[in-house]
């Protein structure tokens, strides 16, 4: 986990916000709310609009393009928004604001409500792997040992439909796939996952992940709720045309 200096607290207006470009092409939005500072992805997850150009009243952040909104304390989607904001951990030291760059695990919607302890244990299970553009991560019929979380890059995910006409979509940072690893009696992959560009993935063994979740049933329950919602979304996408 790396610690990046962003700015002085004095640069952020009271109940206001400002964005900064940091190394590696990342844009970070810093917002003040009373005594607290928050850091989020600086670009709207909808259509690449700078969030600093939007509206912020000290509690709710609104993107000015299509009025997606988020709770500034959590980054959770409000109103019309269809996706949460990626949140970064903030440290304030001697009037300077630092951002701790998070792992994809923390950004993953599936694990978003998990307790801090459990997240740390899951983090220690995660193996970070790099794949070149074009690599197939798994194919239909492969064993379902591992769960994947995309950290950077893009992965195309195709669910086989009568073997010929796949229902496909593209995954972005923080999205989870290969979730059959967390299910019972799903020993074989029903989908194909391919990297569309050079990508970094976190890979967690399914059985080990389930053990961690069993030891913290409250967190495990929330993960399973998120997982069943995720699967329902795919059921919907296969039925219609």
């Amino acid at each position: 986990m790396s610690k990046i200096r962003i700015c002085n607290t004095a640069e952020i207006p009271s109940n206001g916000m400002k964005d900064y470009d940091v190394e590696g092409g990342l844009k970070v939005l810093i917002a003040n709310a009373g005594d607290c500072y928050y850091a989020y992805q600086g670009v709207c997850p909808h259509q690449e609009v700078c969030l600093a150009e939007g509206y912020y009243d000290g509690a709710v952040l609104t993107c000015h393009q299509h009025l997606w909104q988020w709770d500034i304390t959590t980054g959770k989607a409000l109103g019309l928004a269809e996706a949460p904001l990626e949140k970064y951990e903030v440290k304030v030291e001697d009037g300077e604001i630092f951002v701790l760059q998070s792992s994809a695990l923390k950004a993953a919607q599936l694990f978003m409500d998990v307790s801090g302890d459990t997240l740390q244990r899951l983090d220690s299970l995660a193996r970070r792997e790099k794949y070149e553009s074009g690599s197939t991560l798994y194919n239909i019929g492969d064993p379902t040992d591992d769960l994947y979380i995309l950290d950077s890059g893009r992965v195309e995910f195709l669910i086989g439909r009568d073997g010929t006409s796949p229902a496909g979509f593209v995954l972005h940072k923080g999205e989870v796939f290969g979730w059959a690893a967390l299910l019972e009696n799903q020993a074989r992959r029903i989908a194909k996952a391919t990297c569309l560009e050079d990508s970094v993935l976190l890979r967690l063994n399914g059985e080990e992940t389930l053990k961690v979740l069993e030891s913290d049933p409250a967190s495990g329950y929330l993960v399973m709720r998120k997982l069943s919602t995720l699967i329902t979304r795919h059921l919907g996408s296969q039925g219609e045309k």
């Binding site: 195309e156 229902a167 496909g168 979509f169 045309k241």
Partner: peptide, 12 residues
């Protein structure tokens, strides 16, 4: 035409 969107694929 197949469109792969964030949530699913469409055909037209």
């Amino acid at each position: 035409i197949q469109v792969n969107a964030r949530n699913r694929a469409h055909h037209f």
